[in-house]
Design a protein around this nucleic acid. Structure first.
Lengths: 335, 335
DNA sequence: CGGCAATCTGAAAACGTTTACACAACGACG
DNA sequence: CGTCGTTGTGTAAACGTTTTCAGATTGCCG
């Protein structure tokens, strides 16, 4: 029971060499063949596994990277996690997951925790960016990549979705389908995505020459139920022939509400979601959706971060901003 | 730039005390008021944050726990992750995520990696349990909790779903709805869930007095597309009035196939899924599904693990097995 | 005011690695 | 045969904590 796992010292004793030699052999540095052999034999016999913590203490690298987002239940974050995890694994990093329940304090807590040095870097996908965030970001002791918008001039890498163009794609598509009374179920406008989509919607309407009607806009909460209720409120007071939803979850809710109201999709009302998650292909009719490249954003963020940690660009180098292009996937709900 | 973060030494110098005193004060041990005050003042002024790695090396606890599963894209694992993350956070642990893509070697790799001591414990949710797993499990240097079945007598805590009763619930329900020609879209039977469901299906049919018909059983891959194709093959050769699917993803695929075949759900064919994930409420018609308590399994596993790590039961104590009860959620797809 | 117990403190040793440095051994070369 | 690189090795010092132990300080009582 009390076997406390072999250490480099155990091996050294058994092989009759110094711990330095053991370390060197195990790290593939040159040594006399005989030494190499004896060390490897001893290590093998003892079933030695190097202690990651001790190694980290010395090397100042943990090979862990954190990802913090609001809620892993949201398919968007999920797509990011999957992709991030892939990239990290390929690069020999492990993923530490923080689900903050959209609590700003929790997010800040994670940022401050960086000082503990339990990770080599952080990918942060905040719902809102407060001044608190910015303050912590500038003093972060390890590289951080933000998925989302940060004000210009902040010394931090970021990967953004182009919500604005995304919304524009959707509105144009609906317009081309002959829809003129386009309703909009957005999320809270005090969140980064909500604000971006709101601005995008206004701009897109202007592009195609439609007027912005207060009564055709309703606010949900980015979740299914909230979307369903928002759609319900909207239908009660406005006559729309299309419904653009700020994410797929709310679009799913809207589809349900429309069905309950006996409105046919897409004949009576076309529905378009955003994020183009897996959900879009499981609904009926399948949901037209604007993909904002969640997976790609995750991947790019991870790559950016790894490059910062161990790359040519390392710690120096000016902050980089990546903009991921949206892509419209037209399905049954709008044609 | 080169500021290398204050350590306990920096504080000691500034406060004019020894590092031992600093450590004690910061850990809330008794000290003379003046010492306490000076240390705290210095720590505060320097913005000191303790180094988690160094602390871990000394204390032999990392406060990290790993969760390894096949694919976080699967809603079942997702539900587990959410719950696990909750429990861990409340207990002051961080979650390290391993998505193994159902690759047995990757799983074993994770198990072996435990020797590196970068986590205090592991929750493992394997698709299959090989002898390799068992070997590694018995020699694991930190506590491991398995979500899924492990052979009796293995010295490892486990939390299982009661697939068998779950399948039985579904079959009885369909029988009560007057269905007599029940088809079954299972996953591969060489996986733990696949095997359990297969056994459950045979037993359940016997319970209600129906015959097991080879032709009404088809194998998918636990994913949407595979489920769709499996349903397609099944419909081509058998006349069924109900379709039980071994998970919700395949049920979603089956719903699509049925629609393509012009079969009404539930009038022509009733459909029942398993796992009762969020998906079940987004389909049309909403999917009847047998919940196998993914969330609960995650929670119980996390609790069990934490208890092993720091609990009354600690390292000693015989292995515990928890069986989570299934629960049928009847929705539109079967009534 | 001396002695004793109780309290607080600092020096030093751990935790398990990596690595700078110095030294030994070695063949090669003049 | 002495000197010189070259190569391999061992000692010891880090990395940033916690913790043991012994010594210093304090307060209290006789």
């Amino acid at each position: 029971m009390g076997e406390d796992g072999p250490t480099i010292v155990t091996i050294a004793e058994r092989a009759g060499v110094s711990i330095a030699s053991v370390s060197r052999v195990l790290n593939g540095q040159s040594a006399r063949p005989e030494t190499t052999e004896r060390v490897l034999a001893a290590a093998d016999a003892l079933g030695y596994v190097p202690n990651a913590v001790a190694r980290s203490l010395k090397s100042r690298r943990t090979n862990h990277i954190a990802f913090a987002m609001a809620d892993i239940g949201n398919p968007v974050y999920l797509a990011m996690v999957r992709e991030i995890q892939q990239v990290l694994r390929a690069a020999g990093y492990r993923l530490v997951l923080h689900s903050t329940d959209a609590d700003v304090d929790d997010e800040l807590e994670v940022l401050r925790g960086l000082g503990q040095r339990y990770v080599d870097g952080l990918i942060l996908c905040p719902l809102r960016v407060t001044s608190g965030h910015l303050a912590e970001l500038t003093r972060a002791p390890v590289p951080v990549v933000v998925i989302g918008s940060v004000p210009d001039g902040q010394p931090v890498d970021s990967v953004r979705a182009d919500s604005r163009t995304g919304v524009s794609l959707a509105v144009r598509h609906l317009y081309e389908q002959g829809r003129r009374r386009i309703g909009f179920v957005n999320g809270p406008v005090d969140t980064v995505p909500g604000a971006a989509r709101d601005a995008g919607f206004r701009a897109a309407l202007a592009e195609v020459g439609l007027a912005y009607e207060e009564s055709r806009v309703e606010i949900g909460d980015f979740y299914v139920e909230g979307g369903a209720r928002a759609a319900d409120r909207l239908l009660a007071r406005a006559d729309v022939d299309a419904l653009l939803c700020a994410n797929d979850l709310m679009a799913v809710g809207a589809l349900r509400t429309l069905r309950e109201h006996g409105r046919d999709v897409p004949a009576d009302v076309a529905v378009v979601g955003m994020d183009d998650t897996d959900l879009a292909t499981t609904t009926w009719p399948p949901l037209t959706s604007v993909g904002l490249g969640s997976a790609e954003r995750g991947r790019r963020a991870a790559e950016l971060l790894i490059d910062r940690i161990t790359g040519a660009t390392a710690r120096a180098g000016s902050p980089r901003q990546i903009l991921v292009r949206p892509r419209l996937a037209v399905r049954g709900s709008s044609r």
